[in-house]
Design a protein around this nucleic acid. Structure first.
Lengths: 208, 208
DNA sequence: TCACTAACGGGTCTGTGGTTCCGTTAGTGA
DNA sequence: TCACTAACGGAACCACAGACCCGTTAGTGA
């Protein structure tokens, strides 16, 4: 803590990078299969074919490992589609999220990541960063809608994109309701309607 | 497992009830302070001034205890307010949720409950039941809005109420954004707008 | 009021998640 | 290509959450 250098920072190339890669993939698998609660670092080490000492030294705790995994996931981005209308773009986004959360592996993984973030501020910060990046990637479609005059000037793009995802995550984590394509479409419609009506216009020009 | 009777079912009165009460309150406190991860049943027993054997016998696991706590919480209901307009009612609901989630203790508790539910199907079922009850309590205000002609016939009341909460929980768990009164008001507005536009009309008459 | 036994609880034991020690392997810079 | 040392990893070790045993307390029905 006090004496500085974290392991993995001085010689980040070669073996160190390979170990990190293997451990993160193993952690992903383990989280997906066991969930956040059932995760132990020795098991991750076994899956990664790496000494468990290494895992404990580099990441220390389960939440530390999850935080690093989130950082890694944040780096790989998926491209967005463009349909020419706000509703079309938001629907594409909603369906992408819906498909991701419905996929047995991905859905379980995201649940585990979110659960981990509830208990640790560093992990929570990593999760926020991850979603901030994803939201930023889709924000342009709202800006284009503003330019086209579909939604009023001053509309906060991030708020709109988040409004699309929110009901889907609510279903996944809280209500347990069906998470099908019509649900996704409804989420997109609701967000588009609200955006058109000027609900997401920021008066002071301040962004979240 | 195979031989039937669960402890606490044959003599549910007197001491058994007192123990349950004390343990649930202690679990609530512990969850609030330590979060879901940092919870151990011996600590709960200590707080409740109850033998730890009792806690292990009656509830067995952390998730089992959380599931019972959720059932207990579901039984105590908070009344809703009526303002005479859909937007007014939804705003009242949004602010209630916002205040609950912002409160340091309550917010932490709900985070912990949701995290626990991600890892265990019984707990998840209990969580779904809890929110289903809460949603039902507020559904009448949407039905009244239908009667007043504010929103189209066939609008699913539950969908509307859930649409109000969703962005608030999204902020709490995922984006980490500000969770203030304007945010709550915006959530209510967005839901009201979408409802008015007929986004939540169910075609087949089937409810979620 | 009394007998019956469900449910409680202190004490002890154990499996395992996590830590530490120290020798080995392999990046890195000259 | 060589010296230096960061980073890895097997093995022994430890602490503690959770299981178990068995004697005690107190609801319940007659």
């Amino acid at each position: 803590m006090t004496d500085g250098v974290e392991p993995g920072t001085v010689r980040p190339g070669g073996r160190t990078a390979r170990v990190r890669e293997a451990v993160l993939r193993a952690a992903e698998d383990a989280l997906t299969e066991q969930g956040f609660t059932g995760l132990d670092l020795a098991d991750v080490a076994r899956r990664a074919q790496v000494g468990k000492t290494t895992v404990y030294r580099r990441w220390g705790t389960v939440t530390g490992l999850v935080a690093d995994l989130l950082q890694d996931m944040a780096e790989q981005s998926a491209p967005r589609s463009e349909t020419g209308s706000l509703l079309g773009d938001l629907t594409a986004n909603a369906r992408l999220v819906q498909r991701t959360l419905t996929d047995p592996r991905q859905g379980a993984l995201f649940k585990a990541l979110i659960a981990a973030a509830t208990g640790d501020v560093k992990t929570a910060a990593a999760l926020h960063r991850f979603y901030d990046i994803r939201v930023r990637e889709w924000a342009p479609c709202v800006r284009q809608a503003v330019e086209r005059g579909e939604v009023p000037e001053g509309t906060d793009p991030h708020d709109v994109i988040r409004a699309v995802s929110a009901p889907l995550y609510y279903h996944l984590l809280i209500s347990g309701g069906r998470l099908d394509e019509p649900t996704a479409d409804r989420a997109a419609e609701a967000a588009a309607m609200a955006a058109r009506a000027g609900v997401f216009v920021r008066v002071g020009g301040k962004h979240a």
